[in-house]
Design a protein around this nucleic acid. Sequence first.
DNA 1: GAATTAATTGAACGTTCGTTTTATTATCTC
DNA 2: GAGATAATAAAACGAACGTTCAATTAATTC
Lengths: 216, 216
Amino acid sequence: MARTTGSDGEKTEAAVREAAVGLIARLGYEAMSMRQLAAEVGVQAAALYRYFPTKEDLLFTLMREHMEGLLEAWDDARPAAADPAARLAAYVENHIAFHIERRHATHVSNMELRSLSHERLTQILKMRTAYEKELRAILRDGAEAGIFETDDVGLTAMALIQMMTGVIVWFRPGERLSISEVTTTYLSMTMRLVGAKIGACSAARPVGRATEAVAL
Amino acid sequence: MARTTGSDGEKTEAAVREAAVGLIARLGYEAMSMRQLAAEVGVQAAALYRYFPTKEDLLFTLMREHMEGLLEAWDDARPAAADPAARLAAYVENHIAFHIERRHATHVSNMELRSLSHERLTQILKMRTAYEKELRAILRDGAEAGIFETDDVGLTAMALIQMMTGVIVWFRPGERLSISEVTTTYLSMTMRLVGAKIGACSAARPVGRATEAVAL
DNA sequence: GAATTAATTGAACGTTCGTTTTATTATCTC
DNA sequence: GAGATAATAAAACGAACGTTCAATTAATTC
């Protein structure tokens, strides 16, 4: 046989991407075979090569578009206001929402970096660094304004990102907590972690601890 | 050829374990071939099967021993005192020290879970849960005693563990920060994150923020 | 020093892998 | 409706995979 009735390149390519994200997230890039992916899409393995020249090209495409999406999402969510606390709150909310919504793609982008060629790895890491740089800028501004109290901006940024991204490891939609409950809790943990002063944060509710400290 | 002069089963097995941890951490379990591992040890692939019946047995052994080591380390480090803040400080210090010292093994234990059979996965996860339960108990005790201020004990525990374990992603020995500097900073971030009250923590230096809150 | 055991080699097994090639059919263009 | 093109199937490629087996030699035992 050959071309099947109703076959459409765009639809097939989209189906390949979607199936690939799911399979790689579940099995790992190395463990997923092209035949397995093709079967999931309902196609022969050879057909995949019409859309992606190699298996690694497929992986790289998924990762690059994930990172581009993350940077775009932050570009849209970034508040105009200069208030560091509000900017930090927006960063946290955007980060958690984006990563929960794309758990599988995030898993792939975080776990399969070692399967990229050196050049492509560099490309992905460059995007990641640009994204992290945004957080460091917020923390630095907040520390200089005396609103935050961070011992080490770089280290705090890494700790926050690890903490937030870690949500995808245990979060399952429809279980005990909703996305907004998780986000609220993470927001207040973040504000406490950076030592945010009261009233400085418009989006987050008052962090709470300082009131009790005063009461001591 | 056959048995080589000076060959010793115990030494070879230890060399296999060590090389396997390094290779799996760098390449991933699926991407590492038994021939590659054998070459690293300086032996033929067939020789590996004298010590580990299958590739998965090797992986499982590495993971199980890593988790056993973690539980033992905490058993030794656990303070006798009942003070939740001191216990939390001990947990953080032990966790970071253990994971930095065994970065590669931690990487393997965290990243290659999906390559285990269902039964063995359950076994490893049981150990991991037992370890995390210790942290939840500390947080609960601290919250009940009014020393900590945690919105959600389970969620806080996950956030803390992700944050702390994340150290191995970026930490490189001999770079900008020493282990003790990293530990100190993470300890103070932890204490702020859980909203620890001043003076409650014997091991950590005063967390700092409350003093300024009082000064407001 | 002969017998036994421990440690390893080298070659091979069947399977699966990513990928390529060729042929075939559906759809689109005019 | 003929010709061009897009989308796929089917089969095959060589290479690499985990693993097994028989042979061989070093070390140990008595």
